[in-house]
Design a binder for these strands. Structure first.
Lengths: 239, 239
DNA sequence: GTAATAGTGTCTGTGAGACACTATAAA
DNA sequence: TTTATAGTGTCTCACAGACACTATTAC
């Protein structure tokens, strides 16, 4: 923050890029197919320019709604946080652009709306997405997002952002297994979740799966945000 | 990343703000006294505009050198990472500015140079700094930086960035105690550091303190970057 | 001598990993 | 009946916290 003449500052474009993650069978990410140059026809993260009248966080909120159509309790249950800022000189061939990346964890997969700028929008399984040709530096941003999500499940209760307003412990475990890409011991997982104060609250409801099995207790997210000591992946932290 | 007409993008100024931390008796932060409006005469984080020809990370590198005068092995031993991006609409009264904050951990306290934009520069004990009137949203940025530093000491070997190229385990413990603001059990601390593969490497050197005591073995930073399982603060994570 | 620091040993409790066992549902 | 899931119990090992003890230095 120097004493620059305000009228002679170097002008930048500022965008937000959204990494929207969801768990169905596995971890999935929302991508759009670009309709305009550069990278027309290439898959990319949804996002857009920050308007002069809104904060960066507000721009992220706005893009989340515009690109996913999330509303009501699904929007309220969605976790949104800043990931980091990417500002290589040549990351956008048009002009000097700085992109602030956000991570969103949504409980459901709303039908994405192909906006004015995108000719298509759909969810990709993470493994598939990471093998696509991806516009700009969005491949790197996605990798950072996945690692952030994996790390945060270790020491926070954020997994409930991916389950919806009520869930069984089996469903919660599937979220962990999908994000971490490894299986967990059911008994130990239960013990840890239930021993963590404020992670979940039990309800009187019970739910039965499609493929048999005893009816499971239904839980709600608790008020706790952190898990200490953490629930560690205890494997090599690879992408 | 939308299909905006590149020539009609909303222009932003982009700055980097540096939170440079060091440990002497306690945790200290480098501040400058602003020489120009806005906030002339107020203490602020060092930083400046990102140039059109450099990446954001390069701007942070440049500002670190310019503001601290760090060179050689001290610069090489300094840890630098992106903290987050702050972009409220009204954070700078001059114009729309987005600031990318960086955290730097330096082993020494070089005599800061009051640059063209600053009339003074000095190190403040963290407690004192947090009670000063601080320019822009820099107070919030400092708090985020301190929490990041505290958290990273838990699961990384970053503390060696605050000690210099060689150190005793007692000195390393003082770094932890200064950053965390709590005392640690000496024996347990030793056991954890030495049991963590790649945290430190012993040298043949020994060092004697100023106030008596047996000579201590001197260590070098090891190659390991992460500590798993982590060394937890095991207290409430407060600012 | 005393104070301060380094280095080591040990007891205990917590908690995670592994795994066994029972109960209840759908097919 | 088989298969799949929920819920519980238990053994063991790793490891952190607490704390005691000895050794070596400056003063």
């Amino acid at each position: 923050m120097t004493g620059y003449d305000p009228s002679s500052f170097p002008p930048f474009g500022v965008t937000v890029d959204m990494v929207v993650l969801s768990v169905t069978r596995g971890l999935e990410v929302l991508l759009i197919e670009r309709g305009a140059e550069p990278y027309a026809g290439t898959w990319a993260l949804p996002g857009g320019f920050v308007l002069p009248t809104e904060s960066i966080d507000a721009a992220a909120d706005r893009e989340l709604v515009e690109e996913t159509g999330l509303t009501g309790s699904d929007l309220a249950g969605t976790h949104l946080e800043q990931l980091g800022t990417f500002g290589s000189v040549d990351r956008d061939p048009r002009m000097r652009v700085v992109s602030v990346a956000y991570l969103a964890l949504t409980p459901i997969q709303p039908m994405p709306t192909a906006g004015t700028d995108a000719v298509a929008a759909r969810w990709f399984p993470m493994e598939e997405a990471l093998e696509l040709p991806i516009a700009f530096d969005h491949h790197e941003i996605i990798e950072v997002a996945v690692e952030r999500a994996r790390a945060k499940l270790e020491y926070t209760t954020l997994a409930t952002s991916l389950t919806g307003p009520d869930f069984t412990l089996g469903e919660l475990q599937l979220v962990y297994e999908a994000v971490w890409g490894r299986e967990l011991d059911r008994a130990n997982f239960r013990r840890k979740i239930l021993a963590t104060d404020g992670f979940v609250e039990i309800t009187s409801e019970r739910r039965t799966g499609r493929m048999g099995g005893a009816p499971a207790s239904v839980y709600r997210p608790g008020r706790g945000k952190v898990m200490s000591p953490p629930l560690l992946r205890s494997e090599l932290p690879s992408t």
